[in-house]
Write a protein that binds this DNA or RNA. Structure first.
Lengths: 217, 217
DNA sequence: ACAAATTTTTAGTTTTGCCTAAATTTATTT
DNA sequence: AAATAAATTTAGGCAAAACTAAAAATTTGT
């Protein structure tokens, strides 16, 4: 599989959560920052390789083979992100572009050994689960901060938006994975929340609270 | 610079040691396992980018800019090889293909941090020097085993041929970098040598002895 | 239901890096 | 110094992965 093909598989994999019956060409085009006609071309090529199926005008769906390959790429991406943060002093908002490159390196041994070297991590620096060699993904019970009620508490376990902008916003307020917080107040007008973190009160917009995952304490 | 362009620079860099006044098109073609006409195309492109110069029918020479870029790629290659051996349990005959991929990853921070993480190694697993960030290469005094006289001794510091076949041949005879050996006998007929290593006598063909570097004890 | 709007596909180009075949230049013989 | 051989370049093409513009299919709105 080429770099470009792998990126399509990854994009379609992520979009399948949203589009249960066929991922539309336009959705893929937007995700890949390309044009719909390019997507059509690639879908034809990939369906020839049996990694996805498509009926004209009906979007794409990964086959079992395609799913496995997509998860293998995601496994590599998340292991490399872990490596960058754990061993090379990268911050969680700096790892994405480099991991986008590293995820395409071809070597079974490399990934097996990297996994061992890192101590078989279960999640990456953003809290996303790392698929195992067979493509199994352990799903963690979690909910968005925005869904908590006043008085409830939880521990930060992941982000829904892993853009550098959001991650830096969290850094600024001292929010990182593993920290506990409690909801003190919810503003009816704009859905912003006042939460307690490390004994301090901080206010988080609804947009922020809708992108931070917690697990029930 | 694309992956292909970087591979050309690297090939030309290595060939410049052999061809002091312009690396011939055919030599590059052979090194790159491609055709001379493809090389001509690429040379034109690269000279447009000012990383090399060429006069028609006169071969190619790297400019200062091209030299720096080539050495940067080689630095990455050798740092990754060191990482694979030191941290990921790769053997010295297994690192080449993976490092060929990893050397093209673009991130200054990645390489700076990798270098630090490895403790600023001076040589890679084959004994080749690792250029520093400015492209300086520390040259080590060394000579081929085949050039030693009977009675002389030395410490293995590098290989001239880093093919898996040669490295496995060395493994089989217990020869690795850092080991000391002494020349006991030289066969006049075929130039093969009997050397002492770890108290045992082993015979090495001229071909083998012509690819192992030692430093004077 | 059917016209309008949207989505998707088709057709025809472009660029990169490679190829073959042919032409040209340089090097080697005699 | 030709003639031949070898090396190099030119010319014309191909495949991958993108693009634009236009055609076709599907969905939506009234």
């Amino acid at each position: 599989m080429t770099l470009s093909e792998e990126n399509y598989l990854k994009a379609i994999y992520h979009l399948e959560k949203q589009y249960k019956e066929g991922v539309p060409t336009n959705a893929i085009a937007e995700e890949m920052e390309t044009k719909a006609s390019s997507v059509t071309d690639m879908i034809k090529k990939l369906s020839g390789k049996k990694v996805l199926t498509h009926k004209k005008y009906q979007g794409a769906r990964l086959t079992e083979k395609g799913l496995l390959h997509a998860k293998a790429v995601i496994r590599k991406h998340r292991l490399w992100e872990s490596f960058l943060v754990e061993k090379l002093n990268f911050k969680w908002d700096e790892v994405h572009e480099v991991a986008e490159q590293l995820e395409h390196i071809k070597s079974e041994k490399l990934i097996r050994e990297l996994d061992r070297f890192l101590g078989y991590p279960k999640t990456d620096p953003h809290g996303d689960p790392i698929p195992d060699e067979e493509g199994n993904i352990q799903v963690q019970e979690k909910e968005l901060l925005s869904q908590l009620e006043v008085g409830e508490r939880g521990i930060c376990v992941g982000v829904r938006d892993s853009s550098a902008a959001f991650l830096q916003y969290l850094d600024k307020y001292g929010i990182s994975l593993g920290k506990e917080l409690a909801v003190l107040h919810k503003e009816a007008y704009d859905e912003s929340m006042v939460v307690e973190l490390d004994g301090k009160k901080i206010t988080i917009s609804n947009q922020g609270a809708s992108n931070l995952y917690l697990k029930q304490k």
